[in-house]
C-alpha cells in the first residue's frame, strides 16, 4: 500500500489524532484506495511549528498540520478569521473559512499545497492567577501573553501590555508573576498544564480565536491515482474541517467542565451584557485590521454578508 506521511508537533494523544488524523486515515483507505497515513508526531520530522508549511512544500512530509498565526505574514487574509466577532456565537469557523476559499480569496496564501482542512478553535479566554477579570477595567495595565500581532492589538485595545514568549514558557511565567494573564483558547489550558498554576478563567468577551490548517503537498496530491484522489476528496474540505472544529470544541468543553468542578478555581462566564463593554473595545479592531490587509471583501464573506 502507498504511504502518506503526516507530520505534526504535538503528542499522539492530542485532539488532533481523533478529530483529524483518524477520519483522514479512514477516508484514505476507503473504496478502492489503499492509502495509508503514516504519522510522525511530536516534531519527529523537524523541530517546532514555525516551518510546518515549508515542510509540506519541500516534501519533508506529504501532509502537515499548522497554525497560520505562527507565520501570520503569509496568511494575512486567512488570519481575518481569527479577529474578534468574525465568527458569531452560533457560527461555524470552518464554514466561513471555506466560504472565503470557495470565493477564491484565500488561494494565494496556500501556494504549492492542497488544503485538506481549515478550521477555527474555540473562543479565546482569559487565564489568570490570583485575580478575577469581570470588566475591561480589570484588564488595564496587565501583562498578558499573546501569540501573534493581531492578538497583541486586541490586548492593547483593552489597555493591557502584550508580552511575547514561547508557549513552553507560559507555565513558569504565570507561576512567578512574570505575566498576569494569558489569552488563548481553553484547550491550551490542558495542552500546557496551565490549570496547575492558574485559578481563574473568564469566558465570554469577544477576543477572537486561533485558526488551523492541514495541507498536502500539491505535486504529491496530483500524482495520486484516481481512486486515491477520490478517497481523499471524500473527506477533504468542509467534512474534515467540521470534524476538526467539533473535536476542538468538545475538548474545550471538557476542560471547562473540569475546571468548574475543581476546588479553588473560578470560572467566570460573562453574560452578553457583561461582555458588551469588552466587545465595544475589541470588535472595532476587526474592520480596521481587515482594511489594513486589504481584506474587506474577505471579512464581508466571512461575516456572511459578502
Amino acid at each position: 500500500a502507498e504511504d502518506i506521511s503526516f507530520a505534526h508537533f504535538v503528542p499522539p494523544q492530542h485532539t488532533l489524532t481523533s478529530a483529524v488524523i483518524e477520519p483522514l486515515a479512514e477516508a484514505a483507505g476507503s473504496g478502492e484506495s489503499e492509502l495509508e497515513i503514516k504519522v510522525y508526531p511530536g516534531g519527529e520530522l523537524g523541530a517546532g511549528p514555525l516551518e510546518q508549511y515549508v515542510r509540506a512544500v519541500q516534501g519533508v512530509a506529504d501532509v502537515v498540520w499548522g497554525l497560520p498565526g505562527y507565520t501570520s505574514s503569509q496568511f494575512s487574509k486567512t488570519m481575518i478569521s481569527e479577529l474578534p466577532g468574525v465568527r458569531g456565537p452560533d457560527g461555524h469557523g470552518y464554514e466561513l473559512l471555506w466560504d472565503a476559499w470557495d470565493a477564491g480569496l484565500l488561494e494565494r496564501e496556500f501556494p504549492a499545497t492542497v488544503p485538506l482542512a481549515l478550521w477555527l478553535a474555540e473562543p479565546n479566554v482569559f487565564i489568570t492567577k490570583d485575580r478575577e477579570i469581570r470588566t475591561p477595567e480589570d484588564v488595564e495595565g496587565l501583562k498578558i501573553r499573546v501569540s501573534g500581532s493581531a492578538a497583541a492589538r486586541v490586548i492593547e485595545s483593552l489597555g493591557a501590555t502584550p508580552v511575547q514568549m514561547p508557549a513552553t514558557e507560559m507555565y513558569n511565567a504565570l507561576q512567578t508573576g512574570l505575566i498576569d494573564a494569558i489569552v488563548t483558547g481553553s484547550s491550551a489550558i490542558g495542552d500546557f498544564k496551565l490549570d496547575e498554576v492558574a485559578n481563574s478563567y473568564t469566558l465570554g468577551p469577544s477576543m477572537g480565536q486561533i485558526s488551523f490548517y492541514v495541507v498536502m503537498n500539491k505535486a504529491r496530491y496530483d500524482a495520486l491515482g484516481e481512486a486515491e484522489k477520490a478517497a481523499l476528496d471524500s473527506v477533504r474540505g468542509r467534512t474534515l474541517s467540521q470534524s476538526a472544529e467539533e473535536g476542538w470544541f468538545a475538548r474545550a468543553d471538557q476542560i471547562i467542565e473540569g475546571l468548574k468542578s475543581k476546588e479553588g478555581t473560578t470560572v467566570i462566564e460573562l453574560s452578553a451584557e457583561e461582555a458588551a463593554p469588552f466587545n465595544a473595545l475589541t470588535e472595532p479592531l476587526t474592520d480596521a485590521i481587515a482594511e489594513e490587509v486589504d481584506g474587506a471583501d474577505v471579512l464581508a464573506i466571512m461575516r456572511g454578508d459578502g
Partner: peptide, 23 residues
C-alpha cells in the same frame, strides 16, 4: 529513506530554526 528534496529541506529548516530559536 525519503527523498533528496526532503533532506535539503530539513538541512535548511533545522539550520535556521535552531539558529533562531528563542529558547
Amino acid at each position: 529513506l525519503r527523498s533528496f528534496d526532503a533532506a535539503t529541506g530539513l538541512l535548511a529548516s533545522e539550520s535556521f530554526t535552531l539558529a533562531s530559536s528563542s529558547e
